[in-house]
Simulated scan of single mutants.
Amino acid sequence: MNVKDIRLIVMDIDGTLVNSQRQLTPKTKEALIRLEEHGICLALASGRPYKGLIQLAKQLKMDEYNGILISSNGARAEILPSRTVRFEHAIPTELAKEVLEHLKQFDVYPMIEDGDYMLVNNVYQNEITCKGKTMNIIDYEAHSNGFLLKESHDLTQSVNFSPSKILSAGSDVYLQEHYQEMEAPFKDHLDCMFTAPFYFEYTAKDTNKGAAIESLGYAKEQIVAIGDAQNDLPMFKNAGIKIAMGNAVDEVKAAADIVVDDNNHDGIGKWIEETFPEYFQ
């Protein structure tokens, strides 16, 4: 593929665009803005909801260059700054209720976006363990995305709308042991996936980052997709150039055309500088 054909760069966020402190580094930020200045569109594709994307998008000036936000693992795609929706696929309300009822038997914490709020069962019941470290998962998710919290002791009764996704959080070892039971009743009706070792999510069937990208109208040879986790693999199917971060899981690296440096060492920024040196003269 000729890099001169590139018109769209689609990037995952956590583990890809931002570093381990969930920050956008100056080098990568500058490189991406250079691409926009030369007519290449940027898209952020993440399990995060819109509220968790927009501040990063503004740092990258995507609201000035008609950037694209693909949120909730592909459930919605919209164009900035107008927020024109190009793709939307939510979980039907009754099916969402069935998932929430099913999850009651597992040691996990369901979380659902509801506008400016995140619905949870109990704001004080929130600790999980990942890689031997304990974390307050509700605080982590709410502050990462700018949510206020709304408590409901029975989410099955409170969710009277069609959510973009259902996020369940749990300790990494526990989820590995139980995720097949968690997905079993729904695997023919919903997409069920890990988006982090401590997150197992549900979205509408055939809703993923790749389906959202396909709705945007770009030819495959015009698209670069960059990611690190299993939920980034559907993006690769719709991209002419597939890039895995140095910290990516083995499955993603195996599917990639290129493996770049990790997210703590400006993997994206370095690749851009090497691929488009004329933009930095």
Rank of each mutant, 00 (worst) to 15 (best):
I272T: 05
A211T: 13
N126V: 08
Q176K: 08
V249T: 11
E251P: 04
N264L: 08
V99I: 14
R34Y: 14
P49R: 07
H178P: 00
K133I: 09
I128Q: 00
E201Y: 09
G39N: 06
M245L: 15
H143W: 11
Y109Q: 03
S164P: 05
W271A: 00
Y202P: 03
A96G: 15
I258Q: 01
K97M: 01
N121K: 09
R86I: 02
P163I: 02
N19G: 08
R34M: 13
G52P: 10
M62H: 09
F276L: 02
I241Q: 08
G240L: 00
K220Q: 11
D114A: 13
Q157F: 04
L44K: 09
I40D: 06
A212N: 09
A43H: 09
G269V: 09
K242R: 15
E214H: 12
D114Y: 13
N264M: 05
Q222F: 02
D12K: 08
I70F: 09
Y199V: 01
A254C: 01
K242S: 03
K150E: 11
H265I: 09
M193A: 11
Q55N: 14
V259K: 07
T156D: 00
P110L: 07
Q23E: 15
A57L: 06
C41D: 00
H102N: 12
K97I: 04
N208L: 05
I268Y: 05
E127A: 07
K133D: 07
